[in-house]
């Protein structure tokens, strides 16, 4: 561990990231450019989130990493190990015990507290990017609060599919001003964006940092006659029976059998430890 500066990055880099985080918090939802560094992992593996975490961690933190809700996937394990090695911080898989959570594409099911921070890994921070490829134009659109194009996109969803079919990275308006990409979380998680914890977003390849302070109003864009709907697979979890958690569909053989399980592995584990059972664990228990 002594070979690295605390949390890997050098102090000047951390100061630059820290200044960007402060401006991000001061202008909620606005994307602050920052001089993203090359990290010892490829783009797309959370280099933005890792840099924000590195600038935010203290030695007293307990660090948790989830990838699509799971603590035990390659991405989560490798980032957790990275900070175990370079920052010497405690790590945990329990949402309750974590003070800083880095996440790829999910918000934990358990309600986050005032003293927690959640860092999102963001691939494309610009919500308007697929509608307008030029950064100069999207900057202008944000400055003029010109978000009509986004509503046209959602309208086209309705005219083609009869409903807003955007199911992840669902655009939100933060504090009544900036339209923001909440990172590719399922829209099921959108209502949780109004939370007690501090939310920081890091996009490494695209070199942007943005933030949502606690208790900030976050509204998912919609229409009066087609209101926003947080959707999930219409099943209970097959392991813990939870009906309120976001589910992954898992194909279990080549005959079309499938199961639905909580995508938040810690939530599912806690429920099973508390004695809850689902379709596939009842037989085992019996």
């Amino acid at each position: 561990m002594s070979e690295y500066n605390f949390a890997y990055l050098d102090e000047q880099t951390k100061r630059m990231i820290r200044r960007a985080i402060l401006k991000g918090l001061a202008v909620p939802g606005y994307q602050v450019p920052f001089a993203s560094r090359e990290m010892p992992m490829p783009y797309g593996w959370g280099t933005g989130g890792v840099q924000v975490s590195a600038a935010t961690l203290t030695p007293d933190d307990t660090f948790k990493v989830i990838d699509q809700g799971a603590d035990d996937t390659t991405n989560a394990v490798s980032i957790r190990k990275f900070f175990e090695n370079t920052a010497g911080v405690e790590t945990t898989e329990e949402t309750e015990k974590a003070s800083l959570i880095q996440t790829r594409h999910r918000i934990p099911e358990a309600k986050l507290r005032e003293d927690q921070i959640i860092v999102y890994q963001v691939p494309i921070p610009e919500p308007l990017r697929f509608l307008e490829p030029r950064e100069t134009e999207t900057r202008k659109m944000h400055s003029l609060e010109e978000y009509g194009l986004m509503h046209v996109k959602l309208y086209e969803d309705i005219s083609q599919h009869g409903a807003i079919s955007t199911s992840y990275a669902y655009p939100v308006k933060v504090s009544g001003r900036y339209v923001m990409d909440p990172s590719p979380i399922p829209k099921f998680d959108n209502p949780k964006l109004e939370m007690d914890a501090i939310q920081l977003f890091g996009a490494g390849r695209e070199q942007r940092i943005y933030a949502v302070p606690p208790h900030t109003k976050v509204v998912s864009l919609d229409f009066e006659d087609y209101p926003f709907e947080a959707t999930k697979a219409d099943h209970p979890c097959d392991l813990c029976g939870a009906e309120d958690s976001y589910l992954d569909e898992v194909i279990t053989d080549d005959a079309g059998s499938r199961m639905f399980v909580c995508s938040d592995t810690d939530y599912c584990r806690c429920r099973r430890e508390a004695g809850h059972t689902g379709r596939m664990t009842k037989d085992v228990a019996a």
Binding site: F6, A7, E11, K14, R18, T56, L57, T58, P59, D60
Partner: peptide, 9 residues
């Protein structure tokens, strides 16, 4: 690095 981390938090 440690004091700056605490101060920034």
């Amino acid at each position: 690095s440690i004091q700056a981390a605490h101060a920034f938090r």
